[in-house]
Design a protein around this nucleic acid. Structure first.
Length: 690
DNA sequence: TCCCCTCGAGTTCA
DNA sequence: CTCGAGGGGA
């Protein structure tokens, strides 16, 4: 294919050209690194690489881990002297799943003529996200240290490396005449945070992550500055060695430890792919608790003689592999921006993404929140974006990669009509949200309200989920809450309806009727919440129920001339909430629906929780976070309320206890920051007993 | 009137 | 879980 301007390429052409270039580069690499004669000169090679980079800039999805651009380390910088590595510092092949590791093991078995799996023991150790470095000792004395550079030639950072406490200047007697030690220079996460805090105080530029901070510290011209930075070093391999003090990888690392190096205590030997997988999962599990950043696990053949037999392919050893964690951030492309309409009529934009693995989960959608958010980040259809799942589960679009924006991308225009019903969608006052104005008949709003009505904290009708409600709505079987309770009778009269629908056998229908019947009696607070009145959520509904006690009193109050005044006198109800309530009941259609519903359900007066006045949590405010083991969150809350506790949803100075479950995130940090007492689930239960 | 606290609403994937 | 906004105390 002739070379053309990258911007003129179609995606298919780009992909073809990209793979052509990748093949040429790989061939050139193999010729160069194997002892064959180079097939092209440096300038030609460079041109190929530049073209690949340009294509990847325009078509980000081609930037795979196998791309040649991802394989080679950065070339050596200019202001340090260069050092040619006696043995090249290679990179490792990557594995991303158990299958890749199994294939790696099988490949080695084939190469060595060993057929049974598990006969090649592997060492496993965390893959530190730092910079690799090489330390050369001659006659036991550190003579020079170099960064990786391009793998063949690195920068001379001897003076800087000498300042690290983990780097011995002299080896014990009996050390080999020549010993080149390889390892990783890194910075602990806590040291990085402290360094950045100091940088901020001094108004200096912040480092993006510990690895960048370590790189910055190592490449200081003045070693005295490096000495003030908290750099650390793990030794993990040797390169040139005159006499071998060990014959296994494990022995090698033990020897380093004897010599005064720091080695990673988590390194261990695995005898099968299953053991490797277990180790990988264990490390992934404790990843966030480790003091340093890691991006996977490194596997190496333990027996050095076998390593030697296996040798190298291109620029990676055949006897080692990096089993990587999937990144918590990833690049992907926005395929479309769609609008969802919620029960309150709010138009919410959602990005449909080219599916991408983020932190082990395939993400295909991400909320864009609202009109202003799209404008602020200038997200366009076709853009390449960074998505992440931070401590929390919900993916977010972090930013647009402007360099990868297709030329034809146009700013997103937010619709001003509801995509579901075509009614006007307006912004009220200073609201960020645009709302569909067709409250009464917009199908999206009606279905949304029904879904809310049957939700867990409202009527809690099992077996009537979103999908079912949607299909029943479409078929005209359920349009209002009251319809739910007349469904069985109507179906009996005209049995051609549900009984004939796929997936609805006699048993599933019987189950549905039973779960609906179970809710023909309902607590007043649940009923109020179920109505889905603006600004009236779980807590406010409870406050209102506690104030009115019965449904009759509640309805009377709503129609009272002085409703507004009386409502605002209730704690937690202000102008806005009172207005919303009065408006809801002033609307004839709403009132009609409530009356119809009351024909079929019996409303129980509000039952105050018999809160113990002197229980273990009497008068205390509790916040639950994370997932509990023995109780569900709701059960734990109910229990605490019985014991006199007040349950809040966010941590503040007024919080007495935070009960921590597994996977707790920001609330834990907030509690620590404010000095709020933290209880484990066990401690909470113990206290609750006593 | 300001600011802190609390509540409501919306959201993803397995 | 997070954001935005309502409520209410200072």
């Amino acid at each position: 294919m002739p070379q053309r301007e990258v911007s003129a390429l179609t995606p298919i052409e780009a992909q073809i050209r990209h793979s052509e270039l990748a093949a040429q580069i790989t061939a050139a690499d193999e010729a160069y690194y194997g002892q064959d004669a180079p097939v092209m000169d440096d300038a030609a090679y460079d041109a190929l690489r530049q073209e690949v980079l340009a294509i990847e800039a325009a078509f980000a999805h081609l930037k795979s881990p196998t791309s040649p651009t991802q394989k080679v380390g950065a070339g050596a910088g200019s202001h340090f002297a260069k050092i040619v590595h006696a043995v090249p510092m290679l990179s490792l092949d990557n594995a991303f799943a158990r299958d890749d590791v199994a294939e790696f093991a099988a490949r080695m078995g084939r190469f060595l003529g060993i057929n049974e799996e598990g006969t090649i023991p592997l060492t496993a150790e965390p893959k530190i996200d730092g910079l690799s470095a090489s330390l050369r000792y001659e006659r036991g004395v550190l003579v020079h240290a170099a960064t990786r550079g391009d793998g063949f030639e690195g920068e001379d950072v001897t003076a800087n490396m000498r300042t690290l406490p983990d780097v011995p200047h002299i080896l014990p007697a009996g050390a080999p005449d020549v010993l080149e030690v390889r390892g990783e220079v890194y910075m602990d996460k806590s040291d990085f945070a402290a360094l950045n805090a100091a940088q901020q105080n001094e108004g200096k530029k912040l480092f993006a992550n510990p690895r960048n901070a370590a790189a910055g510290a190592l490449r200081q011209k003045d070693a005295r500055i490096t000495a003030t930075r908290p750099l650390k070093f793990f030794a993990y391999a040797w390169a040139e060695v005159s006499t071998m003090p060990a014959d296994t990888q494990m022995g090698m690392v033990a020897y380093f430890k004897q010599c005064g190096f720091t080695t990673n205590p988590l390194m261990q030997l695995c005898n099968s792919v299953d053991e490797v997988q277990a180790y990988y999962e264990h490390i992934a599990h404790i990843r966030s608790q480790l003091p340093y950043d890691i991006d996977g696990v490194v596997l190496k053949v333990n027996v050095l003689a076998l390593q030697q037999q296996l040798g190298f392919v291109a620029r990676a050893p055949r006897w080692a592999i990096a089993y990587k964690f999937s990144a918590e951030q990833a690049f992907t492309r926005v395929e479309a921006i769609e609008i969802q309409v919620g029960r309150t009529g709010v138009l919410t934009p959602v990005a449909r993404l080219e599916p991408v693995n983020v932190g082990g989960v395939i993400v295909a959608n991400a909320t864009l929140h609202n009109e202003a958010e799209i404008a602020r980040k200038d997200i366009r259809v076709g853009d390449t974006v960074v998505v992440q799942r931070a401590g929390d589960v919900i993916p977010q679009v972090v930013e647009v990669v402007l360099a990868d924006r297709p030329a034809h991308a146009v700013p997103y225009i937010f619709p001003d009509v509801c995509p579901m019903c075509g009614a006007q969608a307006l912004r009220e006052g200073a609201d960020v949200a645009r709302r569909c104005t067709n409250e009464a008949t917009c199908p999206a709003q009606m279905v949304g309200r029904l879904i809310h009505f049957v939700s867990r904290l409202a009527f809690d009708i099992e077996g009537l989920g979103e999908r079912t409600l949607e299909s029943f709505y479409e078929k005209g079987l359920i349009r209002t809450p009251a319809d739910i309770f007349t469904l069985q009778a109507r179906n009996a009269e005209n049995f051609t309806k549900i009984d004939n629908m796929p997936g609805w056998g006699a048993q599933s229908l019987a189950n549905l009727w039973a779960s609906i019947d179970a809710r023909r009696s309902i607590a007043l607070n649940r009923l109020i919440f179920a109505l889905g009145i603006r600004h009236v959520g779980e807590v406010t509904a409870k406050d209102l129920a506690a104030h009115c006690y019965t449904i009759e009193a509640f309805l009377t109050l709503m129609q009272d001339e002085n409703a507004l005044e009386q409502l605002t006198s209730i704690n937690g109800v202000g102008e806005t909430v009172a207005q919303a309530l009065v408006q809801f009941f002033a609307h004839e259609g709403n009132m009609h629906q409530v009356q119809a519903l009351l024909q079929h359900v019996q409303v129980q007066p509000f039952a105050a929780v018999g809160a113990a006045a002197n229980g273990p949590f009497a008068g205390k405010t509790l916040v639950f976070t994370g997932s509990l083991e023995t109780l569900t969150r709701d059960a734990a809350k109910a229990k605490a309320e019985q014991l006199g506790a007040k349950i809040a949803s966010s941590v503040s100075k007024k919080t007495d206890f935070v009960i921590l479950g597994a996977g707790a995130g920001s609330k834990k940090l907030e509690a620590e920051r404010l000095g709020v007492a933290i209880l484990t689930e066990a401690a909470f239960l113990e206290r609750a007993q006593g």
